[in-house]
Design a binder for these strands. Structure first.
Lengths: 180, 180
DNA sequence: CGGTACATGTAATCTGTTACATGATTCA
DNA sequence: TGAATCATGTAACAGATTACATGTACCG
């Protein structure tokens, strides 16, 4: 039960439509918590009926009408009390490790291929994160308080990807010693 | 759709009951893919009706009867063809990052507390992994092929935890500069 | 006497994914 | 002309979590 809180968090700095929220969940917060537009529209209704957000309906011409959501005081209080609760993280479910547990029982090339593929993804991710770092967080010591948490998240992402890229190299080396 | 394959994988080396499988999913494979006993019993039924596993009913006295599951040839084939399919990983959903995105809007002590708590968990995890490494994977170069993938998973776990512990230190340092 | 281990399950609910549905505008 | 962007949603299904349910044996 934390997608609602992720949405409230995204609304801290700016009012957003469901559509714009869904885009945010593709980048930024979405690097650490992803959600589809279907989920977001569903949750926004729930949050609205609970008083956590306000809606402003904005008629448009040429495009469908907008519903711009904003955080209410009650929404802020929901965040405040949620912050004190225990932090849950469902351990990442990653099929790659199941595949690795199959080494020695299935054709090794397929596992190697999966690791190579994964490394490409990690490299891409790392490049993206570094680009964001260079653009917006070049001097972390002078960051306003409000940005420090976001920066730390990005830093976590960078380190994770770095670790993963290096691990892929080591994994490929060891997998190369497995007889086919 | 990969819990079935995780179960088949766990059955590669030994026949197990649903109960024992659930325990495996608390350690070993479970470090990278967790599942509750309810899920496992459900999936075992499905796998059985699809011919991926055999059941041997073992009457016991004093305890409920056992159903010992073993992998069939068809089960092995299911793994073989699954291995070639694309590897999915749902990005880890971690509330800690949502909390970090709240820095500057909620009481900072709570966020700091959450990071400290998380660091303790990572340290514990790291110690556990290292214990397993020392016990079973002291000389990775002489490992039989069948164990190499498992070792690589463990190595990934160790590196991830190490990275996380270090990051927590850096995070705590930067969070200490946030005005309350 | 109380807790843990063994051993299996059902039912309800909550989350997440996939597919379907609509429709104008802008850009190549 | 066709794809992408803006903008909202419904419906069905799959997957995960929580609660409930039962019952013996063994250890301290």
């Amino acid at each position: 039960m934390s997608l609602p809180h992720a949405i409230l968090t995204a609304l801290l700095d700016e009012d957003l439509t469901g559509y714009a929220l869904a885009k945010q969940f593709d980048v930024s917060l979405g690097f650490f918590w992803q959600a589809s537009h279907q989920q977001i529209y569903r949750e926004l209704k729930g949050l609205h009926s609970m008083g956590g957000v306000n809606v402003l309906e904005v008629p448009q011409h040429g495009k469908p009408d907008k519903r711009v959501y904003s955080l209410t005081n009650q929404g802020r209080q929901m965040l405040d009390s949620w912050i004190t609760q225990s932090t849950r993280h469902r351990g990442a479910k990653d099929e790659l490790f199941i595949k690795l547990f199959n080494v020695g029982s299935v054709p090794i090339e397929q596992v190697t291929e999966a690791v190579k593929q994964r490394q490409i993804e990690h490299v891409r991710r790392l490049e993206l994160y570094r680009k964001i770092e260079a653009r917006s967080y070049a001097s972390p010591s002078t960051l306003p308080d409000r940005k420090k948490g976001v920066y730390l998240s990005l830093l976590a992402g960078i380190r994770q990807e770095q670790t993963a890229v290096t691990w892929c190299d080591d994994a490929l080396n060891l997998l190369a010693t497995v007889k086919p």
